[in-house]
Every structure is written in structure tokens, then in C-alpha cells.
């Protein structure tokens, strides 16, 4: 059953991004345009997700371990370091310029529009660059 639940989680995620309209970069960029053509939809997407996950996690974490793994794999760091701040800052700029973050970028490639593939290739290149330049 384990692989089915992983696949189901992926499918729900992909369907959720699609249904929510977040795979449309115009909606995302308009969410960030508070002073202009503001589209608050993204706030409701995040709000609805948080309303499900916050109580849901509360009950899941009462389990001693996940159903099909030995332990929960959770980040343990608590410090706010410059990498967290600079990374989030750079991500926000790229997100705003393109209207794309990782999950919507994956979903948007289903349209076949070449720009989404270009973005995705550059994103993966950035991840690989970071690994080999900053983490080695």
C-alpha cells in the first residue's frame, strides 16, 4: 500500500494546484500586485491548505510513527540564519518575475508551452548549481 499512498499524495497535490488556478502565472503575479490588479485567490489557497494541514498534523503527530515508515522526517533546525533569509529573498524575486514556484511550474508544463519548460530547466540547473557550488 505504501507506494499507492505516495502516488495518491502526489495526485492530490497536482490536482489541487490545477483546480486552484495556481498553475496560471498571471494569477500568482496578480496576487503579489497589491497596489495594482490584485487577485487574492492565492491567499485562500494557502489558507484552505493550512486549515486542513494544521489540525491534521496535530493528530498525525500523535502517532508514534508514520504508517509505512520508522519515523517522521522533520526539520530540527530552529535558528534564523542568513541562508534562510537570502534564499527566501531570492526565491521571492524569481517567483514574482515568472509567476511560478516549483509545483505550479511542473503542472504548467502540461500545457506544452515552451516557456514553462525553459523555467523548469533553469530551476533544476539552479538547484544543481547550488548543490555543487555552495554545498561541496
Amino acid at each position: 500500500m505504501k507506494p499507492w499512498f505516495i502516488g495518491l499524495a502526489g495526485a492530490l497535490f497536482g490536482a489541487g494546484i490545477t483546480v486552484s488556478g495556481m498553475a496560471n502565472p498571471a494569477k500568482v503575479q496578480n496576487f503579489l500586485d497589491v497596489a495594482g490588479s490584485w487577485d487574492p485567490s492565492l491567499a485562500l489557497v494557502m489558507g484552505a491548505a493550512l486549515l486542513v494541514v494544521t489540525p491534521g498534523f496535530f493528530f498525525v503527530f500523535k502517532m508514534s510513527a508514520p504508517k509505512y515508515a520508522e519515523a517522521f522526517a522533520l526539520p530540527t533546525r530552529k535558528d534564523i540564519d542568513w541562508k534562510l533569509l537570502l534564499g527566501a529573498l531570492l526565491f521571492g524575486i524569481g517567483w514574482a518575475l515568472s509567476g511560478l514556484c516549483p509545483a505550479p511550474a511542473l503542472v504548467a508544463t502540461l500545457t506544452g508551452v515552451s516557456g514553462f519548460f525553459i523555467f523548469l530547466l533553469a530551476m533544476v540547473a539552479g538547484m544543481i548549481l547550488y548543490r555543487f557550488i555552495f554545498e561541496s
Binding site: K2, F5, I6, G10, S20, A49, G56, A69, A71, A73
Partner: peptide, 30 residues
């Protein structure tokens, strides 16, 4: 310009939340 789409935003957001919940419950991953 895009229209505010509250209903699909909430439905889609809840599905994303459910996805995160299924992954954490089953294999303990974020």
C-alpha cells in the same frame, strides 16, 4: 488581469492540504 476565484481556490487549497496530510501520515515526509 485575472478574476478572483474564491471557490476553486478553497477547493484546490484543501486538496493540497490533504495531499500533505496523506504524505505525512503514510511515510512521514514533508
Amino acid at each position: 488581469e485575472t478574476a478572483f476565484t474564491p471557490v476553486t481556490a478553497i477547493i484546490g487549497g484543501a486538496m493540497i492540504g490533504l495531499a500533505a496530510l496523506v504524505l505525512m501520515w503514510s511515510v512521514g515526509r514533508i
